Simulated scan of single mutants.
Amino acid sequence: MEAGVNRPPITIPPSGNAKHSLPDSYAFVPAVALKTTAVAVPECSLSEVTSCLDEAITQECRSIEDALPHLETKLTCGDAIAWAAYHASIQPPVEDPPALHALLPLFYEKSATPAMIKHGMDVLRQAVEFLNPGQIPVTTFDQPRFALAKCISYSGNGQTLMMRKYMSLC
């Protein structure tokens, strides 16, 4: 993944009552047909989950072994006895580059429709690709919209629905 390119902020000239229009790719919401009875959820192998679970159990045992000696003595400032503190203490320091971000205008349409959810995911994917080429877009939904987004991501032909490989279960 490559870092994004810094761009100067977009300024809209103060022109009083002049209306500025959004590009058609943003403002036009194409129709979507959703067949909720034909959803094909990709399979998830149990071996992938089991291997992740084995590593987690090993790390849990290490954190307990590290915490036990501290419980018999007086604790000092740097002692990590909580699970989260132990795992935070073994993480290497990470220097993340500053994120490039953008604020998109709100949509006028109702958001809880398949067409609007798919359009929003498409617009977000295009915006993320423009700002940070190669970055995987992350979209959050409340639960009813998440259920619709999952159906949309599982019911497409892969060409129009980009979230299939990013919304896997494992």
Rank of each mutant, 00 (worst) to 15 (best):
3 A>D: 15
3 A>K: 07
8 P>T: 09
10 I>F: 09
10 I>T: 14
14 P>F: 10
14 P>H: 12
14 P>C: 12
17 N>T: 12
18 A>G: 01
19 K>F: 02
21 S>N: 03
23 P>A: 03
25 S>V: 08
27 A>K: 07
35 K>M: 12
35 K>P: 14
38 A>Y: 03
40 A>H: 15
40 A>G: 01
41 V>C: 04
42 P>E: 02
44 C>V: 14
46 L>H: 05
46 L>G: 04
50 T>F: 05
56 A>G: 03
59 Q>D: 13
59 Q>V: 07
59 Q>E: 13
61 C>E: 14
62 R>S: 13
64 I>S: 03
64 I>E: 07
64 I>P: 01
65 E>H: 06
66 D>T: 06
67 A>C: 02
68 L>D: 07
70 H>W: 13
71 L>N: 07
72 E>W: 05
75 L>F: 04
75 L>Y: 04
77 C>N: 13
78 G>R: 12
80 A>W: 05
81 I>P: 01
82 A>C: 14
85 A>H: 01
91 Q>E: 03
92 P>L: 08
93 P>V: 11
93 P>Q: 10
95 E>G: 06
96 D>H: 09
98 P>E: 15
98 P>I: 13
100 L>P: 00
100 L>S: 01
101 H>C: 08
104 L>S: 03
105 P>M: 06
106 L>C: 10
106 L>N: 13
106 L>H: 08
107 F>E: 08
107 F>Q: 04
111 S>A: 07
113 T>C: 03
113 T>N: 04
114 P>R: 12
114 P>C: 14
115 A>R: 08
115 A>N: 11
117 I>T: 07
117 I>K: 08
117 I>E: 05
119 H>V: 02
121 M>A: 13
122 D>Y: 10
124 L>P: 00
125 R>K: 15
126 Q>F: 10
128 V>L: 08
128 V>K: 05
128 V>Q: 04
131 L>H: 00
133 P>R: 01
133 P>F: 04
134 G>C: 05
135 Q>L: 06
136 I>Q: 11
136 I>T: 15
136 I>H: 07
137 P>K: 00
144 P>W: 09
144 P>K: 09
144 P>L: 09
145 R>H: 06
145 R>P: 00
146 F>I: 03
146 F>T: 02
147 A>I: 10
148 L>M: 11
150 K>R: 08
150 K>W: 02
151 C>E: 13
151 C>Y: 01
156 G>P: 00
158 G>P: 06
158 G>K: 02
158 G>F: 01
161 L>C: 10
161 L>F: 08
163 M>P: 03
165 K>S: 12
166 Y>K: 03
166 Y>N: 12
166 Y>I: 06
167 M>A: 15
169 L>E: 14
